[in-house]
């Protein structure tokens, strides 16, 4: 009932010659009044700062102007030119960080998706201990990120950590005690932690997706003589496609934007683990050049938007042709 009354432009509301317009206007305005606090909060913390950020990226906003930023000289696109110039030191480091982030993200998204899907499929049938395993797999997701990463930081310590004790002293996989938090191994350290934190979400989402697949489809495939893997390939995977489409995008965005792992794991991330968020953060707060930092942030946003829209667009095209 409430729906028809408040539907915008619904016929009775427009009928002339009917008195008492006040209550009707109140009903019409009501949803907006209810939304107002949320809108104000979003505007104040997200939308306005984003616009301010876009404006800042056009200014020579260095440390001298932090407290009176309106007086910072206008620089046009010069910050962007510095950021994308791969031959200059700033642009070179940014490109390097971008590529490292891309590589880390690719591995993390792939592994998280694979682990999550495998675990969800293996836990599809009831067996004793299934509930306990599901709960256990959720814990990394529930743990506050900083306590989790600090624990990993301890585990990756060269002489006192668990990882070296396990890998070189007990399993003899590695020789001696390598550094995990310095140099190229930082890449592996970040990937391991990110997968550890991220795959439970993939597991959750795929589990929810599997519950939406009707059981008789499996039976039909089994009657057709399909083995477990055949059923997975011909029934499960195609039906999970809509779920996977969103899941992969969310995993990508979360991993690519992640700041926490590299920030807490390292004092100063090595080049091989220089995630883009922390790179921009350090570039901004070490030099206090907020104009340049904002330009980098805007470039990052543009990249993410292009990827997201492109990805969703391609998916839509494909599903239309399918």
């Amino acid at each position: 009932m409430a729906r028809t009354v408040t539907a915008p432009g619904s016929a009775p509301a427009r009928t002339p010659g009917r008195p008492s317009p006040r209550p009707r206007r109140r009903v019409k305005a009501l949803p907006y009044v209810l939304l107002l606090p949320a809108l104000v909060a979003e505007l104040a913390i997200h939308i306005i700062p984003m616009l301010v950020g876009a404006w800042m990226s056009l200014l020579h906003l260095t440390q001298f102007f932090i407290r009176n930023w309106t007086q910072a000289p206008y620089g046009g696109l010069s910050n962007y030119r510095i950021a994308v110039n791969a031959r200059g030191p700033v642009g070179k480091d940014l490109l390097q960080s971008f590529l490292v982030t891309l590589a880390i993200t690719a591995v993390v998204v792939g592994c998280s998706w694979l682990f999550g899907t495998v675990a969800a499929v293996l836990l599809q049938r009831p067996f004793p201990g299934r509930g306990a395993l599901r709960t256990l797999f959720l814990i990394p997701y529930a743990l506050p990120v900083f306590t989790a990463v600090i624990t990993w930081r301890f585990m990756f310590q060269r002489d006192t950590g668990m990882v070296n004790a396990l890998l070189s002293d007990e399993l003899k996989v590695t020789h001696g005690h390598p550094f995990w938090l310095l140099g190229d191994r930082g890449f592996a350290a970040v990937v391991i932690i990110a997968v550890w934190r991220m795959w439970p979400f993939a597991f959750l989402t795929v589990t929810a997706g599997l519950q939406g697949i009707p059981g008789d489809l499996y039976e039909a495939a089994a009657i057709d003589g399909a083995g477990s893997f055949g059923v997975f390939r011909r029934v499960t995977l195609p039906l999970l496609r809509p779920v996977n489409r969103v899941l992969l995008l969310v995993l990508f965005l979360w991993t690519f934007n992640d700041f926490n792992v590299a920030y807490i794991l390292f004092d100063q991330p090595p080049a091989a683990a220089d995630m883009i968020s922390i790179h921009i953060y350090n570039a901004s707060f070490i030099t206090w050049n907020f104009g340049l930092g904002s330009a980098m942030s805007v470039l990052l946003l543009v990249f993410l938007m292009v990827v997201t829209l492109g990805y969703l667009g391609v998916g839509r095209l494909r599903s239309r042709h399918a």
Binding site: T6, L301, L304
Partner: peptide, 30 residues
Amino acid sequence: YRFAGRGTFLTTVLSTQMFPGILFLLPLFL
């Protein structure tokens, strides 16, 4: 309620969730 701008509101609010935090951080600080 079904009201004009409902869809826009939902998409905008949800998409801010996906933006990198570093984007808001510098302006917000300022």
